[in-house]
Design a protein around this nucleic acid. Structure first.
Lengths: 379, 379
DNA sequence: GGCTATTAGTGCGACTTCGAATTAAAACGA
DNA sequence: TCGTTTTAATTCGAAGTCGCACTAATAGCC
């Protein structure tokens, strides 16, 4: 295996990514983005055009000088699949070569789950997408709950599927579909979706807050996902709670997960079962002010304060059912955090509900596939 | 400025770093470490030898085959200065070209401090080191308290020096000594020292705990320092305390900073002044078991638990006066954290007192200078 | 309309780096 | 002692990238 060929592949892949993200629109801006000489970029672009991945689509006049010859990725050159699953359902999206989400599929899982059934569901959902997709499937990305090793593509453990242990997700998918497969933790996949499809497009530092049945965060730091030494970073739902002072009451997600927040707002006991559609249930309770609301704001503000002081991020994206509580919730948390932690009073602090939908995880998985893909070098 | 020349410079610098760290010992292992062809590395090595930065120092026989021709950095080829300061004193070390700490200087600062006095002290201390150093000064690294922008070399603010505001530390030092200057936050400099001189030599993920008059942490994640969006990451001393549940009592460093721990162990009020030599004061109290000790362990274990669940690191290095409490303290914190947070029970968790001395910050600053330096390309 | 300023893209010689073959230097065993 | 094996380092032609000069394409101005 020649090292040079690998380098060229990477550069071709990076060129496509820049064009797809709009970070570069012409040969000259590509040269800047890639850090290559314009003449060299010319050769690369010729190759990409010859291979049918991109084309020239008119001119773009700047304020002065010769206009740029606009380059664009060809939507029909192929597509990327993004899959994500939990114990309830499999979701998948098809993203075309130009980075547009073109279709989606989802499949509810039966109650008596096992590993085989989940894998089979993933397989059929992706195969389903393939039926309507344009061009060849180029790569697959997959989000998975729990601890995932992106290097090996193995999903270590997931409590809600009994025999889910060290599942070689990448290997299986790769064998079935004959394309490279990227695997990442669900929430970290969502963080990547923010970069490609959400509000993180211009940010290098942000944090995704994922309060669902548990409570995890995904940290994007300097443009890289923070995975930790054992791919287990961000599991703050397991924080002992409360943290200082008194006796231990439990874990943080007992108090701040989405079902817990619903219970506190609804004023019901810990045993009460939250509604099927948690998002709608929370939306109904969103307006109601009261001590429960205030306490939740206070608790959230403390967690946000801790996170911000530790990781110093630019923006928090709130995901999951709690987005139903709206911007009011986010703004009150900001205000409370500022009031509680003097250190945060002056510094900028942003918390916003994510603009992404329910399929953020699948979108992120597809984004990971896009990022990993690179054309074969021919010559 | 030719881009190629910059790339070659970087590669020459990287080659020297690998040799200095012992990551490579010969042309062939350098080729692996740098990801270059052996033939190319040969050319680079020839250049470094011709410039007098490295030389061949005998052979090194492997189990089989032709022996490696051992390469070594020449100690006399130049030296790096590392400076660090706080409101009390300036510390500086001289590190020779082979990465050995060869001498140190420190200077106590007067009580009526101002920015000019601190800068002057830094200047004289470095000039002092230069007197006994071998070869030319190649680069300076500086640690500074508070928020520091490594890109611009500006130190934003330090509460204990009245007029310390946006001090262009790198610019001043660079003008005085005519060499490139790297600036970083004190505690993050210590984290770099762990990589070069401490227990972090083989680790890519670790966290430095710095409980002193405040309480900060420095996070090394994937071999990179985590600075945050505004170079303010790690300020956990400002965490509201306690975090969940009851009313707010203050900030975390009111309870867990080094002086606070001494007061709690000594059983004195918050007003009591800790001894001048806090390390010795703590050492005296280290053996005494009691409720205060247990509570401190419990509080520390909660903080460690939170940090570990969030950042998932390989090892915590304890720095500062609390190292006087010894391994017993660290081990009890580990045990308590495991007991408090079920999620940590199985996973590996290491907390060790740093093996580095009082001058860790200066050593780290010198390490940053080493990492930033690269030889001029001649040809 | 032609001239200038400005930016985009290409052609081509020079320089780097690569890769494969070759030489070098050791241990080992017949 | 002399092949054989193994690993290290160098040689040298091939390939790739760069830098610079040049051409191309536009706007604005006289």
């Amino acid at each position: 295996m020649r090292k040079n060929a690998a380098m060229q592949r990477d550069l071709l892949g990076a060129a496509v990514l820049h064009l797809r993200r709009g970070r570069a629109v012409s040969r000259s801006s590509l040269a800047v983005a890639l850090g290559l000489a314009p003449s060299t970029v010319g050769l690369y672009v010729d190759e990409l055009i010859a291979e049918g991945y991109i084309d020239e689509s008119g001119l773009e006049q700047g304020p002065l000088g010769r206009p740029k010859r606009r380059l664009a990725t060809l939507p029909g050159a192929g597509w990327f699949a993004g899959v994500e699953f939990n114990a309830e359902r499999v979701q998948a999206v098809c993203v075309d070569f130009s980075g547009q989400r073109v279709s989606a599929r989802s499949k509810w899982l039966p109650n008596d789950l096992d590993t085989r059934a989940v894998l089979e569901a993933i397989r059929t959902v992706v195969a389903d997408l393939a039926r309507n997709a344009q061009g060849p499937l180029l790569a697959i990305g997959s989000g998975a709950p729990g601890v995932v090793d992106p290097r090996t593509g193995v999903s270590a453990h997931y409590a809600f599927i009994p025999d889910w242990r060290d599942v070689p997700l990448a290997e299986s998918l790769s064998k079935w579909f004959g394309v490279p497969v990227t695997v990442e933790n669900n929430l970290r996949a969502i963080a990547v979706a923010e970069r490609w499809f959400g509000g993180g497009r211009e940010l290098d530092n942000y944090v995704v807050l994922g309060p669902r049945s548990g409570f995890g965060v995904a940290i994007m730091q300097g443009g890289r996902l923070m995975g930790g030494a054992h791919h287990a970073a961000g599991e703050i739902g397991r924080w002992p709670w409360p943290i200082g002072g008194g006796q231990r009451a439990g874990e943080m997600h007992d108090v701040l997960s989405a079902p817990a927040v619903w219970r506190r707002l609804a004023g019901v006991t810990t045993r009460a079962r939250p509604p099927e559609d948690l998002r709608r249930g929370l939306a109904k309770l969103a307006g109601a002010a009261g001590p429960a609301w205030d306490e939740i704001i206070a608790d959230y503000s403390r967690v946000i304060g801790c996170l911000q002081l530790l990781v110093d991020t630019e923006r928090f994206f709130l995901h999951g059912p709690l987005t139903a509580l709206g911007e009011r919730f986010c703004n009150e948390v900001i205000a409370a955090a500022r009031a509680t932690a003097p250190a945060l009073a002056e510094a900028p602090l942003q918390i916003v509900p994510s603009a992404l939908e329910d399929d953020a995880g699948a979108l992120g998985a597809a984004s990971l596939a896009m990022e990993a893909w690179a054309p074969a070098v021919v010559r």
